[in-house]
Design a protein around this nucleic acid. Structure first.
Lengths: 151, 151
DNA sequence: TTTAGAATTAGAATGATTCTAACTGTATTG
DNA sequence: CAATACAGTTAGAATCATTCTAATTCTAAA
């Protein structure tokens, strides 16, 4: 036994291990792991409902409430990101590399775009002095290659 | 009478005049005008419900459905902009100058930030060849001056 | 004045998300 | 090993934002 840690149910140490990535601290329960894995193997920025659909083959009993619950925990832990591009359903993204989103207004597809050089928003926009930037969300809307070719 | 335009109810010319700005083409009915004026005199990016609230002193009978309807027409015409920053209610903005939004994660306030120099997203992010950019939405999240001072 | 179509309306319907309360599982404590 | 405490999970209800529907009103041309 390790040096008698007093009972602390918020940080169990047994079978129910954690994912020690990026300083995050989530209990990786089976459901959370599956939601994470589905998202990590998707490149299309699925909605909560899409994720439920994809998880169902492995966990037929999972409910939408649980998907939302898992997504919330994973988001809080910084393992995944929430993306808002339009009204309606939110989308999720497990790409943790710095990137922005290109949204095709014709087919609805969302493509990750990675930076080619450093970008500092404070160089381009006039923010009040004393403002602290935590993160930036850039969404580029337009027409994707396939849709441009078709028209 | 002008040179007998054949009946075309989509483009009336009488009292119900249009706002000939920016190539837009909206019927500026009393309700639409009020919604637009409320928004134009607000700097806080109100939600549809906020707008209904502010419009009520002048048009007590206006319904939320009409507010949404007016906002939709004004948005389509390019007279106002729809802003998505978080889950939940959409916000609207009548600032048509090029700008981005700073969102304070502490107090929820949204501040317009205007460009100090030209910004071309294609210079910073690697988009697939053939992609056509229509517009970009940049949201900067962080802590505003007031909230930074308090903490 | 009639009429066609746009604008407006209240309320219903839908869609997305969150909440609630009951139940289950796991690991620590006695 | 049994009891316990709490996190995780669940279905379904509740809520919130938005859109739809069908009826009504308004406007301007014929």
């Amino acid at each position: 036994m390790p040096p008698s840690p007093s009972r602390n149910p918020a940080k169990p140490t047994g079978l129910d291990c954690r994912l020690a990535v990026l300083g995050s601290d989530v209990r990786l329960t089976p459901h959370r792991r599956e939601v994470f894995e589905v998202l990590a193997s998707s490149t299309d920025h699925p909605t909560a409902y899409d994720i439920l659909d994809r998880v169902k083959s492995r966990s037929p009993g999972m409910s939408l409430a649980t998907v939302y619950n898992c997504l919330e925990h994973l988001t809080t832990a910084g393992l995944i990101k929430l993306v808002h591009l339009e009204r309606g359903q939110s989308r999720y993204c497990a790409n943790l590399h710095e990137h922005v989103h290109f949204h095709c207004e014709t087919c609805g597809k969302v493509i990750d775009a990675h930076p080619t050089t450093d970008f500092d928003p404070a160089k381009f926009w006039n923010l009040p002095a004393g403002t602290k930037i935590a993160r930036t969300d850039l969404a580029i809307h337009g027409t994707c290659t396939a849709c441009t070719a078709k028209s």
